[in-house]
Design a protein around this nucleic acid. Structure first.
Lengths: 411, 411
DNA sequence: CATCTTATGTAAAGAAAAATACATAACCTA
DNA sequence: TAGGTTATGTATTTTTCTTTACATAAGATG
């Protein structure tokens, strides 16, 4: 009947993974729910939960649930028990952050990014920025749980590499997970930015929605999908590439991808800027377009409204194929609001069968920078606390405890 | 050290679910693999496997795997340990079958079907045909494990009902699972026929493929998807509805659905028959069209080839959105073979980005009747043996054992 | 405030599974 | 056929989890 104990009397975390996983996934918020959900006995749950509480991995909230009798104390992951490092590689800059487990940013940094630098130099820059952020976190933030990267290109998620030739020249087949994993010794994830924005929208705003489509309309056009509650990546990680769906017509414009008639070449930020410039209103970026829309410039309003209809056409196709429950429109051009949405709605409701549109909502994404960063954190945390993997997290947490209890060397 | 025993000395099946599930999913074919995959000790695995073997739920095959030393005996589900009842509701007939767990048909029947009959009369007809098939199975086939139905309409899979108004008038919101479940007391599944054909192609031919698209080109056009290894249904079970994606043009023909320019209205069996008739070659069904193709009738060849291009256009969209690893073309018109395929390939490779087509295979489905029936069986068996549910199966198997050991009453 | 209800903790006994250690099986090779 | 190799079974001990039974906690209710 002896109980395992750590160096200084802390109870052992052995087997506590199932409990931790249930709490993290919010499948069980109270002890009573843990009993039912885990199928373990009260004694075992009590003991393991005690260990998790003692280690600070889980905490009890102030609030309680009234139940008729003694109220239930609510359990949750202790957001301060660890932290994660995330980075989003943009066109000109890399935005990095250290986040607690909420996830919430508690430290961040930005470093310049240039394509020609190639993977190693870039990862080197990311790694040293990460190290600075980790130092800033100090010991109060607990253990580094993992690293998650957002890239502006299709990603082979399992292998942790850029999928095929892409914007990130020279990155094809570079083993990002291996490189960062060797450097930091923690789990590393790499995912496409639009997919991560999709994850953010689902986790943060629509946790109950199992089938959703997120469309990013910015300089380019891309999309991500949650299917059956999981991110849908496709065979090469190229799923959701709606920007290059083509519509044949006589005046099909040339796309950045080299083909004619892509949706992007008609309705993306760069295409609208091109058209505005052509009409004598010099415009460069998607932001410029939005500025003009906000100034109620008629040409801009007209072109954005028209872009909505064109995007609505592809989205209608996607709705027929995917039958999502919710569509979230994000990206810079989403700031045009109804000006963009109305065309999308029009085409979707016109083109799709009633069964697919009956309960379909089309909405704007939360206006928020950094959604890819948060998505990266959600993705990472989801995996760390997954039933099949929690034990690794616990093993690392335990071994850290031991180290921290050693004499504090100042070397 | 006492071992639980059934009435007549059969060992208890308690806890054997995990083992059974691993064998059923082919995650572990030998005892050694079971040890690793289950994480249980050899003693436990041996004991539980012994119980499964004693009950006849699992069997050892003749073949062995050479391993350098004593060869491994291969384990598999005993296909005779139970059977399932499946039915496919077609346009004019219902095809029913009793299948062992291979799954393989060992008895079948066909009953007429007329739409106006409505759900109850139809299910009554199915139920009595099922009862006849079950009687035919006798006791040699073991226990009835479950029932699975294929319907020619979108289905709300979880609720087991027809999704919204459809071809099956009067079926909306009729609780099929409840009705059949009450009658037979076994798990019941209901799914759309194209989805089931998709399941068949995946389980039977492409078990390693996690992302595939199945397109049925027959009288109508429909599709099913496997995404991340699982059937992708969408929010209302309406996913894969590619037949009614529209292409605007001046001569957009009227579709059966009441809209203009649907793919179906241009390239489905009925549309080709319409066009052939219009050209003075009276044709009614998709089969008629195929007959003409097989006779190398130029008009038919031309129209089918053109249909391939039109279908290729939607499939290209679907490829951009879904990024499947394999596309399987089935349905009556697939018998046109390359005549149909070439147009599809042409458009897909022309329209889609290299990343998505680089490793994409486009192939014809196995020529095979009843694929929906087999899909129904696969779907059912997959669920019955799923880790979370096997214990129910075992419980039913155990209780049956007891009953069968009682005196044989002839009442 | 007494009492009801549900939540939660814990000790002790019993059951189940794992670890260990050994024994046996079955094919291969020389 | 002897000996190597891996597969598989089983008795014994040890560990882990459950069951049972009881005790305590804490808000709700009258």
């Amino acid at each position: 009947m002896k109980m395992h104990e750590g160096r200084r009397g802390l109870p052992s975390l052995d087997g506590a993974g199932a409990i931790l996983s249930l709490i993290a996934s919010q499948s069980a918020a109270s002890r009573a729910e843990l009993l039912k959900a885990s199928g373990l006995s009260r004694v075992t749950v009590t003991q393991r939960l005690a260990a998790l509480l003692a280690h600070g991995l889980v905490r009890e909230t102030e609030e309680t649930l009234r139940s008729g009798g003694r109220p239930t104390r609510i359990l949750e992951i202790n957001p301060a028990s660890g932290f994660v490092l995330v980075a989003n590689i943009g066109e000109t800059h890399i935005h990095l952050a250290a986040m607690d487990l909420s996830p919430a940013i508690f430290a961040q940094a930005t470093v310049p990014f240039a394509l020609p630098a190639g993977p190693e130099a870039t990862l080197e820059a990311i790694a040293s920025a990460f190290q600075a952020l980790a130092a800033e976190a100090g010991s109060a933030r607990g253990l580094l749980f993992g690293i998650s990267l957002s890239l502006p290109t299709p990603v082979d998620f399992k292998r942790g590499r850029v999928a095929g030739p892409s914007v990130l020249q020279g990155w094809d087949d570079f083993d990002i997970i291996g490189w960062l994993g060797a450097r930091f010794g923690v789990p590393v994830f790499v995912e496409n930015d639009v997919n991560l924005m999709t994850v953010f929208e689902q986790k943060h705003r629509l946790p109950a929605e199992d089938d959703m489509l997120f469309v990013k309309v910015g300089t380019g056009i891309g999309s991500g999908m949650i299917a059956g509650g999981r991110l849908f990546r496709g065979a090469q990680g190229a799923a959701g590439d709606i920007g290059h769906i083509q519509f044949v017509s006589n005046d099909a414009p040339l796309c950045r991808c080299g083909k004619f008639g892509c949706v992007e070449a008609r309705a993306a930020g760069w295409a609208i800027a091109r058209d505005l410039t052509q009409r004598g209103i010099p415009t460069e970026t998607a932001r410029d377009v939005i500025d003009l829309v906000e100034q109620r410039k008629p040409e801009a309003l007209m072109l954005v409204r028209e872009a909505g209809r064109i995007i609505g056409e592809v989205i209608a196709d996607a709705v027929s194929i995917l039958n999502p429950g919710v569509i979230v429109i994000g990206g810079t051009l989403a700031r045009a609001g109804e000006t963009l949405l109305s065309g999308i709605r029009e085409l979707v409701y016109q083109r799709c069968l009633p069964l697919a549109t009956r309960e379909l909502t089309i909405t704007l994404s939360s206006v928020h920078e950094d959604t890819a960063l948060f998505g990266a954190a959600y993705l990472l945390l989801d995996d760390l606390y997954a039933p099949a993997k929690v034990h690794q997290l616990l093993a690392r947490a335990s071994s850290l405890e031991q180290k921290q209890r050693r004499p504090k060397s100042r070397g």
